[in-house]
Amino acid sequence: MTTIHASRRATLAAIAAAAVCCMASPAAQAADSDTVTIMVGGINKIIYLPAKLAESLGYFKDEGLKVELQSQPAGVDAENQLIAGAVQGVVGFYDHTIDLQAKGKEIEAIAVFCKVPGEVELVSAKAAAAGFKSMADAKGKTLGVTGLGSSTEFLTRYLVDKQGVASKDYSLLPVGAGNSFIAGMKQDRIQAGMTTEPTVSQMLKTGDAQVLVDMRSEEGTKAALGGLYPAASLYVRNEWAASHKEQAAKLARAFGKTMQYISSHSAEEIAEKMPKDYYGNDKELYVAALKASLPMYTKDGKMPEGGPETVLKVLSAYKPNVKSAHIDLAKTYSNAYLSAK
């Protein structure tokens, strides 16, 4: 009996050990399998569409890469995962690279998807009817952002402060994106908020919201921010890119090809490559939202000239740590990986 019990204990120990191996962290699994894990700040947002499209088109496989895409509702959460080393890359807003450098962290964008934020400040129909007509009317209001510390917070604060409304005179509420954003506005927990396509088109179609500030186009972005504001991009830790030059170059090239595909195909053709759950029962609305968004994308994944300077100006306007820091913009992005062999 003793021998049987000993054998059983050994078997159980082996099973437990196997279970521990299976429960290894995603980062450990990624390291073991050479999988590159990329966290996306809301994978079904049209501004981040290139991530899923690159996968659907097989461009990662063409480069010999194994890529796992994960999703977080707010870019700031994805950023935290990157700093912790749990993921190798993030599809999020370029402005995080500048904000993080001011905090002593070196992050660089190695492929840029959008020349402009693609963000829209919507005001609820109820609040608009009550006189909320511009960001100057934000006093006493609650404004929705995806998350505190997110790019939507950066941009919202800048737009409100630019109108002379003090930060103590309005509130910010993290409401995420998509359905949670829509619910927040319908329930009047927020009177206005910043979001992207396809949520913008959904709310305009139902009449639940109106546009206050439109940063889906170059013209609208220049009017709001004073220049191009490169936004959605793939960013990685500088030290990871330096020690994984081949993988970084393959990722950049895959996204460069994706941006070329977007610039040479129609919204209908692109939508056909996306998962059906991205547009649900209203593919027509999704295509319309995508069509309205196509001008915001870069054609080659490269950083638009003058863009980093605009982002630095916006962040410096209300973030003391960025204003006081010596920001080296050359360390916040690189076009070199796009052409590396």
Rank of each mutant, 00 (worst) to 15 (best):
Thr2Ser: 09
Thr3Cys: 09
Thr3Ala: 15
Ile4Asp: 12
His5Val: 15
Ala6Arg: 14
Ala6Pro: 01
Leu12Gly: 10
Ala13Gly: 14
Met23Cys: 13
Met23Ala: 09
Ser25Trp: 09
Pro26His: 08
Gln29Ser: 10
Ala30His: 08
Ala31Lys: 15
Thr35Gln: 15
Thr35His: 08
Thr37Ser: 06
Val40His: 00
Gly41Arg: 03
Ile43Val: 13
Lys45Thr: 02
Ile47Lys: 00
Leu53Lys: 05
Ala54Arg: 01
Gly58Lys: 08
Phe60Met: 07
Glu63Asp: 14
Glu63Ile: 12
Gly64Asn: 08
Val67Gln: 15
Val67Phe: 15
Glu68Pro: 06
Leu69Ala: 10
Gln70Asn: 13
Ala74Thr: 13
Val76Thr: 10
Asp77Phe: 12
Ala78Cys: 13
Glu79Gly: 11
Asn80Ala: 14
Leu82Trp: 03
Leu82Cys: 04
Ile83Thr: 05
Ala84Trp: 05
Val90Phe: 04
Phe93Asn: 09
His96Gln: 01
Thr97His: 03
Leu100Val: 01
Gln101Phe: 02
Gly104Ala: 07
Ile110Asp: 10
Ile110Asn: 11
Ile110Glu: 10
Val112Lys: 08
Val112Gln: 12
Lys115Gln: 15
Pro117Glu: 11
Glu119Val: 04
Leu122Lys: 01
Leu122Val: 00
Val123Ser: 05
Lys126Cys: 02
Lys126Ile: 08
Ala127Ile: 02
Phe132Ser: 03
Met135Pro: 09
Met135Arg: 13
Ala136Tyr: 10
Lys139Leu: 01
Leu143Glu: 04
Gly144Ala: 14
Phe154Trp: 08
Lys162Pro: 04
Gly164Trp: 03
Val165Met: 02
Ser167Trp: 01
Lys168Met: 03
Lys168Asn: 13
Asp169Ser: 07
Asp169Asn: 11
Leu172Gly: 10
Val175Arg: 10
Val175Tyr: 06
Asn179Trp: 11
Asn179Gln: 13
Ala183Cys: 08
Met185Lys: 14
Lys186Thr: 10
Gln191Pro: 01
Gly193Phe: 08
Met194Lys: 10
Met194Pro: 00
Thr195His: 07
Thr199Ser: 06
Gln202Arg: 09
Gln202Leu: 03
Gly207Asp: 00
Ala209Gly: 02
Val213Thr: 07
Val213Ser: 00
Met215Ala: 05
Met215Arg: 14
Met215Tyr: 03
Met215Asp: 02
Ser217Thr: 15
Glu218His: 08
Glu219Phe: 06
Gly220Met: 12
Lys222Gln: 14
Leu225Ser: 08
Leu228His: 12
Leu228Asn: 12
Tyr229Met: 12
Pro230His: 11
Ala231Cys: 13
Ala232Ile: 06
Leu234Pro: 01
Val236Tyr: 01
Asn238Arg: 15
Glu239Pro: 00
Ala242Gln: 14
Ala242Leu: 11
Glu246His: 06
Ala248Gln: 12
Ala249Glu: 01
Lys250Asn: 08
Lys257Thr: 04
Gln260Asp: 13
Tyr261Asp: 00
Ser263Asn: 13
Glu269Gly: 05
Met274Leu: 15
Asp277Gly: 01
Tyr286Lys: 02
Tyr286Gln: 01
Tyr286Ala: 00
Tyr286Thr: 00
Ala289Gly: 12
Ala289Asp: 08
Leu290Arg: 04
Glu305Val: 14
Glu305Met: 07
Leu312His: 11
Lys313Ser: 11
Ser316Pro: 04
Ser316Met: 05
Lys323Glu: 12
Ala325Asn: 07
Ala325Pro: 05
Lys331Met: 03
Lys331Asn: 10
Ser334Ala: 06
Ser334Gln: 05
Lys341Arg: 10
